[in-house]
Design a protein around this nucleic acid. Structure first.
Lengths: 192, 192
DNA sequence: GGTGCCATGTAATAAGTTACATGATTCG
DNA sequence: CGAATCATGTAACTTATTACATGGCACC
């Protein structure tokens, strides 16, 4: 089953009514790493959700603001999704796909990629620690408890990644079959 | 940058010409966990790739079979993608999204979910060990070397997941705020 | 001759991204 | 009055999934 954005929104609205804008902030701050969503997608989905009776709309706040609130049907759908459907356990990993295809590069270029990945993991560890420190955890508030569990997973995953990149780089011998040299070269400074 | 299927195909064809059917087997066997693709998507993409000159087609084998081969332009594009574009480091994780939303369930139901996840991780560990044993690793053949690195990442990730689910389940106190009981209940036996 | 695998394709739909487009309110 | 932020929406395009549709060849 796909279409999890719908259920993410239902879940967030369990904590109280909110506007599309409010929800977008939550997506930017706390969900961006596990379930990114664009503003466009979010507003579209909220409209659909309201149309199908899983949310109600409280129209016309200050500047066109609309507040959405969870209905009983919405909560039931959230629970149904959590209890009766199976998540996709192996998400696509572009990072690992690239490792798989690293044979198209020279060993040095491949090691550069792994080193870059390791650096990203270190940054993630720092970022997560900062996020951790910025939150007043209170396990008696269920959403916070589960948020803490997710964050800890992220921390462990980043540690794993850092360690793995170091190990992996050591596995690459210093000069395997040259990959049909082609002048394309560059540093990974996000040129999209 | 998205559209990695294109580059996955270019990468696989670096090892020699193959048909859509051949490539599909590879996707089923060795790529399904990191970059699943449907047969439909694959054939469509191969056609586009050939149209844009990144592959050549050798038409009409035995039963309508077409063999695709990498061109210089195709290899250059693969290298450009690997060297000059940045991968998406944080893929969507439906599994973690659900943990985030577990507050909508009872503590017992939440623990069930974590237990189920842990079991899946154990299965993954077994499956990966079997896959590992079934392959004749030879680090002198670059694609195999990198395949081994990816597999080891998977192994470590599954271990991490198993340990984390155990830890996480312990963090859940035995009776937090009841989640507006609604008769929906069920076991996660994949009812889609 | 029939089962199973080899082999390719298209159509409809869903989900996600990028870009565009607009306007209100608050605060300095 | 201008900048920042609040606030919502639509259109075009890309990517991925599901389902349908078809036929050849090999082997028993």
């Amino acid at each position: 089953m796909v279409m999890s954005l719908r259920h993410a929104l239902l879940g967030l609205l369990r904590e109280g009514p909110a506007s599309g804008y409010d929800l977008m902030q939550v997506f930017k701050l706390s969900m961006s790493n596990i379930w990114p969503a664009t503003q466009s997608q979010l507003y579209t989905e909220l409209t659909k959700l309201a149309d199908s009776g899983l949310l109600t709309v409280t129209p016309q706040g200050p500047r066109g603001r609309k507040e959405y609130a969870l209905t009983d049907a919405g909560l039931a759908e959230l629970r149904r999704w959590l209890l009766e459907t199976t998540p996709e356990v192996h998400p696509r990993s572009e990072v690992l796909l690239r490792v798989f295809l690293l044979a198209a590069l020279t060993p040095e270029e491949a090691k550069d990629y792994l080193a870059w990945l390791g650096e990203r993991a270190v940054e993630d560890i720092t970022d997560l620690a900062a996020l951790d420190a910025s939150i007043e955890w209170d396990d008696d508030i269920p959403p916070l408890l589960y948020g803490r569990l997710v964050l800890e997973f992220g921390r462990r995953l980043s540690e794993l990644t850092r360690e793995w990149t170091e190990w992996a780089a050591e596995q690459i011998p210093p000069g395997h079959t040259q990959p049909d040299p082609d002048a394309t070269s560059g540093d990974r400074s996000d040129p999209q």
